[in-house]
Simulated assay, not measured.
Amino acid sequence: MASPLTFPVKSKQFVTSIQGLKTEVVQFSYDDHIMSQILAFAFEIAVTQIGKMGTLLHARKEEGYGTGPTFNISILMGKRDEPLMMACARQLIEKMSKTGCSRPLILSLGLADHSAETLKDIIEVVVENKIW
């Protein structure tokens, strides 16, 4: 008799305060290779202070021949005039890469406060509670 399959998605959800605002964080890690290919991403983080998805960013590490890695960040949906959001996604994918994780990242930021301090705190909270 075959063993029962386990659901291939690990998740972590918590609420914290960032710069005095209630902030909900949900992380999903897709371990199943087929699911990763179908969904075209393997790691997802949603951070919201407004109860909505907000801006959706895609970040991935690209390996070059004879050079160090490069990181490609793009905005899939939402605010395109917030360079700090792109910096947040870049820092998260770089931190993931340094721990050996090479999976792409989908980052959803629904923020009431777009300050550098808020985004720095978000990076810190996500890394402290990482599931990759």
Rank of each mutant, 00 (worst) to 15 (best):
S74W: 03
F7W: 15
Y30P: 00
G20H: 08
E82V: 10
S17Y: 06
F7T: 04
Q91W: 06
S108P: 11
H33K: 11
G66R: 04
S17P: 00
A46L: 06
D81S: 15
I93A: 09
G78I: 08
G66E: 03
A87P: 00
K12E: 00
Q49N: 02
D32R: 00
D113H: 15
S74E: 12
K79H: 10
M96S: 14
F14R: 14
L92V: 10
T23G: 04
T55S: 03
G66L: 09
D81H: 15
P69I: 03
P83W: 08
S17F: 08
Y30G: 01
L21T: 11
M77F: 13
H33F: 03
A2S: 11
H58C: 01
G51T: 00
T6I: 12
Q27F: 13
L56Q: 02
I93H: 12
F7M: 06
I93N: 09
R103E: 07
S36L: 07
T70E: 13
K79R: 06
A46I: 05
F71H: 08
K12S: 12
I34A: 06
P83L: 02
E24C: 10
D31H: 07
K95F: 10
C88Y: 10
L76A: 12
P83G: 04
N72C: 09
L56S: 01
A87H: 13
G100E: 15
I45K: 00
T55M: 02
G51W: 01
G51H: 03
R60Q: 06
T67F: 12
I106G: 09
I38A: 04
E62T: 04
K12N: 10
K61Q: 07
I45F: 08
S74L: 10
M86G: 14
L92H: 08
G51C: 03
T99G: 08
G20D: 09
G100M: 15
L39I: 04
I34S: 07
L5N: 12
L56G: 02
E63C: 00
I75A: 11
T67P: 00
L111V: 09
P104N: 15
A59P: 01
L5Q: 12
I73E: 09
E63D: 11
I106T: 12
I75E: 04
D31C: 07
G68P: 06
L76M: 13
K22V: 02
A40V: 03
V25T: 02
Q49C: 02
R80F: 14
L107T: 08
F7H: 11
V15R: 11
I50F: 03
K22C: 07
M53V: 05
R60G: 01
Q27Y: 10
H58W: 04
V9G: 05
K95A: 15
S102M: 10
L5H: 13
P69Y: 05
S3T: 13
T70M: 07
S108N: 14
L84Y: 05
N72E: 14
D81Q: 14
F41M: 01
